[in-house]
Amino acid sequence: MMRIFLFLATNLAVIAVASVTLSLLGVGSYLERSGNNLNLQNLMVFCLVFGMAGSIVSLLISKWMAKKSMGVQIIDQPQNAGEQWMISTVKELADKAGIGMPEVGIFHSDAPNAFATGWNKNDALVAVSTGLLQKMDKEQVKAVLGHEIGHIANGDMVTLALIQGVVNAFVMFFARIIGNFVDRAVFKNEDGPGIAFYVTTFIAEMVLGILASTIVAWFSRRREYRADQAGAELVSPAAMAGALAALKQSYDQPSDLQGELVAFGIRGEGKLSALFASHPPLDDRINALKQRYGN
């Protein structure tokens, strides 16, 4: 129920932000009042505003959404030695990476996992699962935290949000071009957009969206290698490789990170094909560390 509420609230916020922005820009409808033509200038602005609005709004509220949807318990005042170690370790790594101290939290999951999110490198959140703390030793956990700090320091949240926004804009733009073409050329509708325009646009958005997701996934995989490198340099190559090896040996793969959080969580190979995977195979990540730093 909470995730449904968050989904609806986010989309309402996107529509509100995009509508206000279009109004301020003085952009009218991209459908011509007479005939079945598209105003390409208005269409480009419309798609760019709505495409970017979704990504930017999601980025700005990402910490809040993560806390609510994942049930992250923020460590404000450490209650035990383990929590104190977490705070001290994140502070050490953040200082070393040259970023502001992130919020630190723990979420319940038997799967070993972690994620970082936030709209800028000085206002971020790092959270780890209870399963990760149970199944990895301190040096491996520290490497995982270094990996997540690397995501923050590298600006991965902002980079992927911008890429997703641009991709969304292109999908919306070309879907409407295709819808208009089918409506006019195939169904010979010259009196304004008919049902064929809307149905074709919807189908084209689904197909183009799936294809476009491979672009975002490719960029995400590149950022994972960089975050692994950050974990190796902030902690040690052996610890980072050990954390990935421990994850590979885990019998239960993460399943409860959804949406944008998946792109920033350490996780094993998923069920999707490599083309759509947000993370490279663990063997490839371990081999990349070995090639760069030696055995």
Rank of each mutant, 00 (worst) to 15 (best):
L38Q: 01
K63P: 02
Y30A: 10
V45P: 08
L59S: 00
F50S: 10
F46V: 05
L59R: 00
F50C: 03
S34R: 13
V45G: 08
L31K: 12
W64K: 10
S58L: 00
V57Y: 01
I61N: 03
S55F: 05
N39I: 09
A66E: 07
K63F: 00
S34V: 13
A66D: 06
A53Q: 02
S29K: 13
S34Y: 14
S34C: 06
L40G: 04
L31Q: 11
F50H: 05
L43T: 01
F50L: 10
E32P: 01
L38A: 08
G54Q: 05
C47T: 14
W64R: 13
V57I: 10
M44H: 01
S29Q: 09
R33C: 12
N42D: 08
S58W: 01
L48P: 09
K67V: 08
I56A: 03
V49P: 00
M44W: 11
N39M: 11
E32V: 11
M52I: 14
M52Q: 10
L40C: 02
S62P: 04
R33F: 15
N42C: 09
L60F: 15
M65T: 11
Q41M: 14
G51H: 10
N39P: 06
C47E: 13
N42V: 03
L48I: 13
L31V: 06
I56H: 04
V45W: 07
L43P: 06
V57A: 02
K68G: 00
G35I: 06
S62V: 01
S29M: 02
G54Y: 05
L40H: 04
C47P: 12
L43M: 10
L40S: 03
A53R: 04
M52H: 08
G54C: 03
L59Y: 08
Y30H: 14
I56T: 04
G54K: 02
G54W: 07
S34G: 12
I61P: 01
M44K: 01
Q41D: 15
Y30K: 09
I61Q: 09
N37R: 15
S29Y: 06
W64V: 13
N42A: 12
G51A: 03
V45Q: 11
L60G: 14
M65F: 01
L43D: 04
M44Y: 12
L59D: 00
R33M: 15
G51N: 02
F46C: 05
L31Y: 07
N39T: 02
M52K: 04
E32Y: 13
N37L: 11
K63M: 05
M52Y: 13
S62W: 01
V49Y: 09
